[in-house]
Amino acid sequence: MIKFKLEGEFIPLIALLKATGLVQSGGEAQSVVEEGLIKYNGTVDYRKRLKVRVGDKIEFLSKVIEVI
């Protein structure tokens, strides 16, 4: 599990995927979201502009990001 310390109110999903190193670029992040490869709190989510907040969990390629 990857623990990500949030510095503000939220972080956009695309930025979170890049910040944790799970994708190399914003374009790649958008593609994995569009393809339904992201789970947001246990449910597949297709929103590219999703605001991820403290307490949320993102799953991608059997990795889990917990936002703290």
Rank of each mutant, 00 (worst) to 15 (best):
S62G: 10
V54R: 00
S31F: 04
L22M: 04
G27F: 07
S31R: 09
F4C: 03
F60N: 05
V44H: 11
I14Y: 11
S31I: 10
E66I: 11
D45W: 01
V54T: 11
K63A: 07
G8V: 12
S62P: 14
I11C: 01
V32T: 04
K5I: 13
V64N: 06
E28F: 09
A15E: 12
K63T: 10
L22V: 02
F60R: 12
A19V: 14
S31T: 04
S31C: 08
S25M: 03
L6H: 15
G55M: 10
T43R: 06
L13Q: 01
G8Q: 15
Q30L: 08
G21Q: 07
E66V: 12
R47F: 03
T43Y: 05
L37N: 09
K63P: 11
I11W: 10
K39E: 04
A15Y: 14
V52Y: 02
K48I: 08
A19W: 00
K18S: 05
Q24I: 05
A29E: 03
V52E: 02
F4E: 13
I14M: 11
Y40M: 05
L6F: 08
E34Y: 08
G27T: 04
R47T: 15
I38A: 00
S31Q: 15
V67T: 06
V32E: 03
S25F: 01
T20A: 03
S62L: 13
